[in-house]
Simulated assay, not measured.
Amino acid sequence: MTQFFLIRHGETQWNRQGRLQGSQDSPLTETGLAQAHSLAQDLRQQRLDALYASPLLRARRTAEIINQYQRLPLLTHPGLSERNFGDLEGRRRDERPELWQAMTLRFQQNSVDVPGFEPADSLSRRAMTTLASLHQCHPDASVAVVTHGEWLRVVGNALAGHAPWSDATELQGNASVVMLNWPVQ
């Protein structure tokens, strides 16, 4: 059985500004760096066998800070990348209101009318396939995975038997951890 430590990256400048990130990036804020350092302290007594991060800067930087105590090869995996929000990426709610109105439907249906928007079922398949793949590489291991909010939400939905687009799973806080044993019983 693989024990996963599912971690959301620290706070970013765009989180603070209310901008939607998705597959785009912005650096961690001072708060985000402090969150990552605090999490690294919390995890330093934990024996981790592997450390993976999304290739996006905010997740990699959080993982690098965690790795100051773990001293493991830091591997990136494209399957850990955040959902693509298409034309809404980098925008605040007061920009492109017609797209934000379409975005509000994301918790009611699989796909929304925003160019480039990744459907929830596609993200869910990608996330669950990635976890299964990491389990195959690291059976009977403790694996930290630094990823993103929507990615974590669809995993929570899949494990709870909810539709991938459901908001039944709450958004995980920045630099927080959820434990998961895989395969799920």
Rank of each mutant, 00 (worst) to 15 (best):
Q101R: 06
N84G: 02
G18W: 10
H37Q: 15
G10L: 04
E95F: 05
L134G: 04
L171F: 12
L105D: 14
L75R: 13
V145N: 02
D87Q: 08
A53M: 10
W151G: 08
L39K: 02
L20K: 14
L33H: 11
L51F: 09
V154H: 02
N181I: 09
F5T: 01
L20M: 15
S176Q: 11
M179W: 03
A160Y: 07
A50F: 02
L123E: 01
V112Y: 02
A144L: 07
Q109G: 04
A158W: 05
Q46D: 11
Q101L: 00
L43P: 04
S54K: 12
H9Y: 11
E64Q: 15
E170I: 12
Q185F: 07
P27T: 15
P78V: 04
R96H: 06
A36E: 09
L80S: 00
N67M: 10
L123G: 00
A34G: 11
Y69W: 06
E11I: 08
R44S: 13
L72Q: 06
Q21N: 12
W14R: 13
A40T: 03
E30Q: 14
A50S: 06
L134K: 05
L105T: 09
F107M: 03
Q185I: 06
L105Q: 15
T12G: 10
G116N: 00
T29D: 11
A40P: 09
V145F: 13
L6E: 01
M128V: 15
R58F: 00
P78M: 02
V154Q: 01
G79V: 02
R71S: 07
R47W: 06
D87C: 03
R126M: 07
P97H: 08
Q185G: 11
E170A: 15
F117R: 01
P55A: 03
S111R: 02
S122Q: 09
A120K: 01
A163Q: 15
R8E: 10
V145T: 07
L48M: 11
T76Q: 13
N174T: 14
H138L: 13
N174Q: 12
L72T: 08
N174K: 06
D140C: 10
Q41N: 15
R47E: 14
T29S: 15
E11D: 12
V177L: 14
